[in-house]
Amino acid sequence: MRTDIFARLDREPEPPKIEIPRMSRHRIALFGGTLVFYLAIVVAVLDSSWLVALDWKVMLFRPYQQWPELHAFLDYYVVLGQRGPTAVMVAAWLGWRSWRQHTLRPLLTLGTSLLLLNISVGAVKLGLGRLGPHYATQIGSAEMFAGGDIFPSGHTANAVVTWGILAYLATTPRARRYLSAVSAFVSLGVGLTTVYIGTHWLSDVLLGWAAGLLIMLALPWFEPLITRAEIWILSVRASWRARRTLGGPSAGVPGEPVPVLVPRTLEGVGDGATARTEAEGRPGLPGTSQALDGPQEPESGPGPAAEPPGAGGTPGTAGRSRAHSAHGVRAERTPPGPAASRRPPHADRTPRSSAATARPVTGGPVAP
């Protein structure tokens, strides 16, 4: 039995039962209060009330000039509110959680929250069109509907949602309390850092906190949709795996070798090149020379002696005689006796014990 840690993590999901938050009365009351606060900030900025005057006081105070030693550190700290880096870090952690708990809910919850954040915050940004402190044109003005995109603060809202999702998905009350405190500290610090650098008004940060909190409080309403999406994704994966398993290249038994058909004309002869060479030199072998080179001329009696070098004759006839005498079929040769010579006959020599004459030249008299 495997005892390594990865096998244990794969077999034993932690925790055994995941509690999904519900939309309780307490949560509904918090959602309603946060929504009222959100609308009050928007109205106060549109009315150019005391909140806009406070924005200008903080901007003219120029915090980055009052504490310049913090500027280098806060330039890196504000990255915790950027959507790209934070989404990658949190998605990596939640991906490991999904693998360990055998569920896609952490990743789907993160995707749902980021989608709600982009839609809600992006629509208000483009709709109100407020300019930032560095692009303000008139002191005391709200700078609304001027083509800007900073109200509410996207860094602040993203910090609330991205780090708050860790507390939302916590599996124990103790972990939920600790992660809630960490996410609140990070989002508060990111919002104040944008005011220190001068990229946002103070009212932008207040509205960003409210926008992110509204998304976190409304997530239980989207839990049934997340559950249906997870079931659909898992069913699609199961059907894809079944189709991949049953749609192999062959319908035979897995692991069974595929038989190879050998042509009958070359069966039992050898490999391709050797079979071709031997078949051309064996006129008596059935099914080889006739199959490869066509029908041969019949021969009666012992074959004539080979033509000596320098004798006349057509090149085709001499080559054919040499090929037949040099490559005889082993089965048709006479086995040598005890007193016979074991040296193979040469095609260019005349046997000593034979008085056979050379083949006549075409069109000439027979040599004595």
Rank of each mutant, 00 (worst) to 15 (best):
S341Q: 08
P106Y: 01
G310D: 05
G364M: 11
Q101E: 15
P365Q: 14
T314N: 03
S325C: 05
A44N: 13
A251R: 13
L285A: 12
A157L: 05
A7W: 06
V79F: 11
L30Q: 09
G310T: 07
G32I: 15
D55Q: 07
Q296K: 11
P254M: 08
I165Q: 00
G148K: 01
E278W: 10
R228Y: 01
G122N: 04
K17Q: 14
W99D: 02
L110S: 00
V36Q: 06
H155D: 07
A136I: 02
L110A: 02
A347P: 04
L206H: 03
R343A: 13
P152Q: 05
A44Q: 12
S183A: 15
L35A: 14
G303S: 12
P21Q: 07
V42T: 12
V58K: 06
P295F: 09
G148T: 02
F61A: 08
L74W: 01
T350N: 12
T317K: 07
L30I: 15
L51P: 07
A136D: 11
A92C: 13
L70Y: 04
T277K: 14
D348Q: 09
P286E: 14
R241S: 13
S98K: 01
L74E: 02
V42E: 14
I215M: 04
G319W: 10
P335I: 13
V160F: 00
T194C: 08
K57G: 14
R11K: 13
T317A: 14
V58M: 15
G363P: 04
D55Y: 01
G111R: 00
A167W: 04
W209M: 02
G84Y: 11
A331P: 02
P263E: 15
R330C: 11
P336G: 09
A40S: 15
T137P: 02
S321H: 09
I119W: 09
S203I: 06
A184L: 14
R264P: 09
A181W: 15
S250P: 03
V258F: 07
F6K: 10
V260W: 10
Q82P: 02
I233R: 10
A142W: 00
G95N: 02
A273Q: 07
Q138W: 09
P315T: 10
P286M: 13
L234V: 08
A340I: 01
H200R: 01
L116Y: 01
